[in-house]
Simulated scan of single mutants.
Amino acid sequence: MAQKNETAVLILSLLITVGLVGAGLWWFLQRSGTNLGGSAPSNQPAQTSSQSFAQLQDVPAGLFSYGGSTSWAPIRLTADPAVQVARPEFKLRYIDPIGEPPGSSTGIRMLLDGQMAFSQSSRPIRDTEFQQAQQRGFSLKQVPVAIDGLAIAVNPSLNISGLTLAQLKDIYIGKIDNWSQVGGPNLNIIPFTRPADTGGTVELFVQEILGGQAFGPNVKFVPNTTQALRQLADNPGGIYFASAPEVVPQCTIKPLPIGRQAGEFVPPYQEPLVPIEQCPNQRNQLNIQAFQQGRYPITRSLFVVIKQNGQIEQQAGEAYANLLLTVQGQELISQAGFVRIR
């Protein structure tokens, strides 16, 4: 009997000890903010995307130069002024390169050369750029903040249902030179593009659509998208590609559906297509669902490129990316015509 009592006492003592240890562990975890379930503690936001510009922490004070991709222009016009209102201490100064057109490549080069605090890119960082940064004693980081698509624009009078990626390639390398070869009228094709070294949009097109091949001798070069759209309005056989928000809402051109295969055309705009005569009172809107779901064949991310050097430039780049990833920032990105990444 005595042995049974001793066993019961030992078991009871063990249970009490386990209970006390468990209670102590629970108290410690609550105090330290640790959550064993893997989710964020209830007294902290799970992501910075739940915050507005005014609520975001770690935004440095100072004047910070930035620039780069021309595809970012709608975001610079829509989101950046709101950043300045909410965070006047975080002063932003957009700068253009001297003697060359702006673009993702020139922006990253200027960042590497110390002319910018951070840059905006419509393509990923290249291996050579990572290497150049390492040679200068720092590294580069890219933070995606939005989803974009490349839209194909033609003259509004052109009657064609769409193009496949293969047909688009053949047009720009000179293999196809008449619209009758792709189901259109007997009309010479006039392809327009910006030069290959001017920005991420053209580089993406060359790599992803042309497979690294050079533009054909039939391609005409224009300095910017504004000039290209004017050319399309004056040339019934013209064709051009650019960031979807720069193309889809325009009144003087027609965006074309694109497909990976024949008969699988996906428009970059929400159907039905708004007739030219109803624009600008009514404009075509981006086919956001097709971009988000990957059904539209030519999509990409927009990146903030950050110099990781432990200095205030790094803090500025991270702050700018985090501002655009807040709920307020993602809403403004949507208003600018891009697809939110969160």
Rank of each mutant, 00 (worst) to 15 (best):
L140E: 06
P185D: 04
I239K: 08
V222A: 05
I75V: 14
Q134V: 11
I147V: 07
D170C: 01
V154T: 12
E313T: 14
Q57V: 12
F192Y: 15
T164V: 01
I16C: 13
Q250F: 01
S180W: 01
G114S: 12
G162V: 03
G329Q: 07
N322W: 03
T193N: 08
L92M: 14
P124T: 15
P236A: 10
G19Q: 12
A336T: 09
I189E: 04
A228K: 04
G174R: 05
Q308G: 04
A233Y: 06
Q308P: 01
P41S: 14
F64P: 00
G329W: 01
T34C: 13
F303P: 04
P45F: 12
L302T: 04
E313L: 06
P280T: 12
G149K: 02
A133H: 00
D177G: 13
S32E: 15
Q231I: 08
F28S: 14
K169W: 02
D148I: 02
Q311Y: 04
P191W: 05
E331K: 15
V9L: 13
Q181R: 09
V219Y: 06
Q282R: 14
L150F: 02
L324G: 07
P60H: 03
L112C: 08
K220G: 03
Q315K: 14
F90Y: 05
S13D: 09
S180D: 10
P245C: 09
I253W: 00
E246A: 13
N188I: 08
V304G: 07
Q328R: 06
I306R: 05
G200V: 04
Q308A: 09
G212M: 00
N284T: 07
S157N: 11
S161C: 04
Q335R: 15
A336Q: 10
F64R: 06
E331L: 13
A242Q: 09
T201K: 00
I98P: 03
I75C: 02
P223T: 10
A321M: 09
V143W: 11
T70Y: 05
P267A: 15
L302A: 05
L25W: 13
T226Y: 11
L92Q: 15
N309P: 07
D96T: 12
G37S: 15
Q115H: 11
N5Y: 12
S121H: 07
R260F: 00
A79W: 01
K4D: 14
G174V: 00
T34G: 12
Q132A: 15
R76I: 07
Q289R: 07
A86W: 02
E100A: 11
R340F: 01
T34H: 15
A336I: 07
T252R: 11
F241W: 14
V143M: 14
G259Q: 05
V143F: 12
T70I: 13
Q335K: 15
Q335V: 06
L210G: 01
D148Q: 07
P81Q: 08
K4A: 14
K4S: 13
N309D: 13
V202M: 02
K141S: 09
V304W: 05
P267D: 11
R194M: 14
Q213P: 00
V206L: 08
E89N: 10
Q115E: 13
G114W: 09
